[in-house]
Design a protein around this nucleic acid. Structure first.
Length: 962
DNA sequence: GAGTTTGAAACT
DNA sequence: CAGTTTCAAACTC
């Protein structure tokens, strides 16, 4: 509490401060985008932005970090509850930020009108409304307004930009931003309207594919449904609250969508952005998308409307799917009905899912309604914050895909992981993840049922995750998937920080989880901070049960310290929580944000995922599991534990809790960690390092192959692989079986082989869980499904490798896809790598990006984290955020990190080091690239190339694209 | 359900 | 950076 009060003032700052708008731009501008954009006529810029924005998330980190994101996401989140207040200063800023994000995203969309209606939704409303009631004229309008504005801008720009090189896009984006700014400055609705109109015109003219796509999308029944519902929900249902919140997300989502949608199609196919590619998306969809993309590209992007329409129809769907995937949650929701069904996967937006789906649609509806009703309800908060955007605007869902996940990425992961653990068996709840969401967001938010997961996946974004919940809710309503939705307890998860929300695509039906969630959510209203201890226990118990929802029981910290799992996960406390005097609610977003910032300022990695995986190992781990175990040999806790009495055999031990082995960084005594003792890890690393090169090369090849297949991924692959880790996801899915594949695929996340490490969710599942084959399987299976998850790391925990992969938004879909989407942006990759994300999750990617940007995190911190592990990539996930930033520097070597004794963290920073050291070139390059990428973003090529990554990129792009 | 233990987080 | 205190979860009864 105390802190809270203090912090409160900061929130605004936090939102602003963290977000460094610029960085995103940079990112957008990054060569990658340009490169992509080049490939595809469509503009890339936004995507980047979007990604950035979304990420939030993730996860928690997102929130903190990424200023960019924050602005967007945070605002959305924060604002909602407090909206008016918080926004004061922020409104304009938020608006801007939102606009920016929106613009970017929207640009691609051009068709803004349509989209706008979709997207728009609330978030904008909040901002806009506040400033401008006028637009409000039509609720959708708000969204439209933005959209239109943005869109128009974008549209025109995009179109032109599309034709133009990426640079143009950048310019355009800038111009757009300027326009937006100007508009914003003017804010006068009139001006905006005018501009919008103009833009609209422009857009109409230019609209071309994007619009067509959008339209198609809308039109597209199944896919559209998801979308539409969202819209509906947004418009109709859309609880204003949600919408507003959502808007930000939307922006992100839009961006994503736009990207995906507009150019996206082409890009997706080509660039492979496809963020989400929706792993879930069916391969078919992918193919279609590719085809579309090809066609588009061939046509020069400007396809005749007819073509576009057709293409769009497919592409759009695909895109949506992809987005959904990437977004996971969000789109998924939409997709849930669609994709998932098709694919047979059910994806929940990850943790996100919770929110969404209660057990049944009805449930979802309930949730939604509840959320809606509740203005500030916790569930809403997280979700709302995160989700709304996504949801409401249906598109959001689609869009979301990108962002979200990200998010997740971050904080969430932890929570998520926890949740997962809790869910031990099948279910996993991602609080943290969600917490991302997030990003991050809510730990609790996501829950996945194992069994169901397998088939159905719930992914959370990260951070993404949490937000999703709301969206998911909406989506769910719309879609039905509710049932599917895994779970989500709405409750939990709201990633505070993260903007992004992933919608779980599907939720599984675990009714139980969902139910719990729902019930919880309902409760949450009342309880929110009030909850009695009993409940808490229930939570924990439940969580343990698999309900997935975790609850905190904070009594003195007001849920504003890391002691609070929810807070740590970047999630708002929900009903299930038995916390007292809880400030970790949407109502107190400002406070929460401030607090987070403070904490981050102290320890940038505070919200980063705690567990990292070694890429190299993953396979093994995976294999091990066969599902069953995950223990990722490679996975390790960043900081390491400090157990003295528990011998690392109890949950007191974070490592054990996360189902990961202890590493050199651990200061534990008498370590008997079943997942691996200190020494082992080092050995493993060594082995890895030894074989790393080979792996890397293999990876590259494999990746390429994959990419070629998938087409998508690429980005991720390319990327920095390394870094990106998060990205997504992929996952391999195979579970273990294909470990290698998974690996590779996952590699996206994981990254470069070199990197070896991937992030794991902070906590994972309980050992049992980890061990649980189920979970594993789930994950794996999920792969097919996709998961967003966590992006971030958080989520999953251990086990994670898979989980990680799964988490990764992009992921997945089937591993096959691999594609995922995601990564379109190299940046994202990076982002993802870390995180998420997330807050969060590819979702991370987006989130991660944000985070990274968020200066705080990265600065310094990451490196440390990275360092922790040796070489690993670890950081990637965690840091998602920071990494980028940090990465820049990338120290070439960093070797290990963890200080052995050390208490806490402080990794020397190793990321760079790790990279350098460990992996060898690959990683190094990767990161470097990343770094480079960030700034400029040349095509991926550099780094990965060595491995062929670049080639991959291109090829992939080409393949996907054409 | 209450109380104890444990180790992370926070504080100095 | 190290030591101590605070906190909440995990665990035990």
């Amino acid at each position: 509490m105390d802190s809270s009060p203090e912090q409160p003032s900061k929130p605004n700052n936090s939102t602003h401060s963290p977000p460094l708008p610029i960085p995103p731009h940079q990112v957008q501008e990054s060569p990658v985008f340009s490169y992509i954009s080049n490939l595809s006529p469509i503009k890339p810029d936004k995507a980047a932005l979007g990604s950035q924005g979304f990420p939030g998330i993730n996860s928690p980190p997102l929130v903190f970090r990424s200023p960019h994101i924050n602005p967007k996401s945070q605002p959305s989140f924060l604002k909602r509850p407090q909206s008016a207040g918080s926004s004061d200063a922020g409104l304009s800023e938020q608006n801007e930020s939102c606009k920016d994000t929106l613009t970017v995203a929207e640009e691609s969309r051009v068709s803004s009108c349509h989209l706008s209606s979709r997207l728009i939704s609330c978030p904008q409303k909040e901002f806009i409304d506040d400033s401008k009631p006028e637009k409000a004229s039509s609720p959708p309008v708000c969204g439209n307004d933005y959209l239109t504005d943005i869109v128009n801008m974008d549209g025109g720009d995009s179109d032109s930009s599309a034709n133009l090189t990426p640079k143009s896009s950048d310019d355009v984006s800038q111009s757009q931003h300027e326009l937006l700014d100007s508009k914003e400055s003017a804010e006068n609705t009139e001006d905006k309207d005018d501009t919008r109109r103009e833009e609209m015109k422009m857009g109409a003219a230019s609209v071309t594919l994007e619009q067509a796509e959008e339209y198609n999308l809308k039109d597209s029944p199944s896919d559209l449904k998801s979308v539409v519902p969202d819209q509906n929900s947004g418009d109709g249902n859309g609880p204003p609250d949600l919408h507003p919140r959502v808007e930000p997300d939307k922006s992100v989502g839009h961006a994503l969508e736009n990207q995906s949608g507009g150019r996206s199609m082409a890009e997706n196919a080509g660039s492979g952005h496809v963020f989400e590619v929706g792993c879930n998306l069916l391969s078919e969809s992918l193919q279609v998308a590719q085809d579309c993309g090809r066609s588009l590209e061939n046509t020069g992007v400007q396809c005749t409307e007819s073509l576009e329409n057709k293409v769009h129809g497919h592409c759009a769907q695909i895109v949506q799917h992809q987005h959904g995937i990437s977004r996971r949650c969000l789109q998924f929701e939409d997709t849930q009905g669609k994709i998932i069904p098709n694919s047979g996967y059910q994806i929940s937006s990850g943790s996100v899912g919770y929110p969404r789906s209660p057990a049944s649609p009805a449930g979802s509806e309930v949730l939604e309604s509840a959320s809606l009703n509740r203005p500030a309800s916790p569930s809403n908060r997280l979700l709302a914050n995160m989700t709304p955007p996504f949801f409401s605007p249906q598109t959001s869902g689609n869009y979301n895909s990108k962002l979200p996940k990200r998010s997740g990425i971050g904080l969430h992961l932890n929570s998520i992981v926890n949740s997962m653990q809790m869910g031990s068996g099948a279910k996993v709840s991602m609080r943290s993840a969600e917490r991302g969401s997030f990003n991050g967001l809510g730990k609790k938010s996501m829950s996945i049922t194992g069994s169901s997961l397998r088939h159905n996946f719930s992914t959370s974004a990260n951070v993404e995750g949490v937000p999703i919940s709301d969206e998911s809710r909406h989506n769910e309503h719309a879609s039905d998937a509710a049932n599917s939705a895994s779970t989500l307890s709405p409750c939990s998860m709201k990633p505070l920080y993260e903007p992004v929300v992933l919608k779980p695509i599907e939720l599984q039906p675990n009714s139980s989880n969902k139910r719990m969630c729902t019930s919880e959510t309902s409760d949450s209203f009342v309880d929110f901070g009030q909850s009695s201890p009993k409940k808490k226990r229930k939570k924990t118990l439940d969580a343990g049960d698999g309900s997935g929802c975790k609850r905190c029981n904070c009594k003195k910290t007001k849920c504003l310290k890391l002691y609070c799992d929810c807070f740590a996960a970047g999630i708002y406390c929900a009903e299930p929580c038995a916390c007292q005097g809880c400030f970790n609610r949407p109502e107190y977003e400002d406070t929460v944000l401030e607090t987070r910032q403070q904490i981050e300022s102290r320890n940038p990695l505070a919200f980063a995922p705690k567990i990292i995986q070694h890429l190299t190992e993953p396979p093994t781990n995976v294999c091990a599991e066969d599902g069953s175990h995950f223990t990722p040999s490679s996975a390790r806790h960043k900081r390491g534990c400090n157990c003295k009495k528990s011998k690392c055999l109890k949950k007191y031990c974070e490592c054990y809790q996360a189902n990961v082995g202890c590493s050199d960084g651990c200061r534990c005594e008498a370590c008997e960690n079943v997942y691996g003792q200190k020494g082992e890890f080092g050995m493993i690393k060594d082995l890895i390092s030894k074989h790393g090169e080979k792996l890397d090369s293999s990876f590259g090849t494999t990746l390429e192959s994959v990419a070629s297949k998938d087409g998508l991924l690429h980005n991720e692959l390319y990327n920095p692989h390394s870094l990106t880790p998060l990205t997504p996801a992929f996952q391999c899915s195979d579970h273990g079986k294909g470990a290698p594949k998974a690996w590779l695929s996952s590699g996206g996340y994981l990254q470069s082989p070199e990197s070896c490490l991937t992030y794991l969710a902070p906590y994972g599942m309980s050992p049992g869980q980890a061990g649980n084959p189920d979970t594993h399987n789930m994950i794996i299976e999920a792969n097919t499904g996709i998961m967003d998850l966590v992006s971030f790391g958080q989520g999953i925990g251990y086990g994670n490798e898979h989980t990680v992969n799964q988490l990764s938004p992009r992921c997945e879909v089937p591993r096959n896809d691999g594609r995922l989407a995601a990564l379109p942006d190299p940046q994202d990759w990076e982002n993802t790598s870390r995180a998420q994300t997330y807050a969060n999750h590819q979702v991370s990617s987006a989130n991660s990006l944000r985070w990274r940007r968020s200066s705080t995190h990265f600065d310094g911190n990451k490196p440390d984290e990275a360092a922790d592990f040796d070489g690993g990539l670890y950081s990637i996930l965690d840091d998602d955020t920071p990494e980028i930033l940090k990465e820049i520097p990338m120290p070439p070597n960093a070797i290990k990190v963890s200080s052995p004794n050390k208490k806490r963290v402080s990794p020397p920073h190793g990321q760079g080091a790790e990279l350098g050291s460990s992996s060898s070139a690959g990683l190094r390059t990767g990161r470097k690239f990343i770094l480079q990428a960030v700034p400029s973003f040349p095509p991926l090529t550099p780094c990965i190339d060595s491995k062929g990554a670049t080639g991959m990129n291109n090829s992939q792009k080409s393949s996907s694209g054409k």
